[in-house]
């Protein structure tokens, strides 16, 4: 699946997007896999309360299942307007 990062999450990880091969059942499982990769991922995902997640461009939550999802995006709380 495609995993996208925005704002300071993108900066900490050093990538705007990447393709990830995973069998993770939920967003939280995917986060655990990413955290285990490298320090920069662990730093970006250190505090999930400071992060939001969107699945196929709809705001979701960390307990949500990933079955059928093509695009996951992680970002800080939005500051539009």
């Amino acid at each position: 699946m495609e995993v996208l990062y925005f704002a300071w999450v993108r900066e900490r990880i050093g990538l705007p997007r990447e393709t990830v091969e995973t069998d993770a059942a939920t967003v939280a499982d995917l986060v655990e896999e990413l955290r285990a990769r490298e320090d920069r991922y662990a730093a970006a995902f250190a505090d999930l309360s400071a992060l939001r997640v969107a699945l196929d461009q709809d705001l979701s939550d960390f307990d949500a299942p990933l079955a059928g999802v093509r695009e996951v995006a992680f970002f800080p709380p939005m500051t539009g307007g």
Binding site: F6, M78, G80, G81
Partner: peptide, 13 residues
């Protein structure tokens, strides 16, 4: 305005 602030995916720097 209330929803654009917190639910539209923009990030200001």
């Amino acid at each position: 305005m209330d929803y654009l602030k917190s639910r539209a995916p923009f990030w200001k720097r």
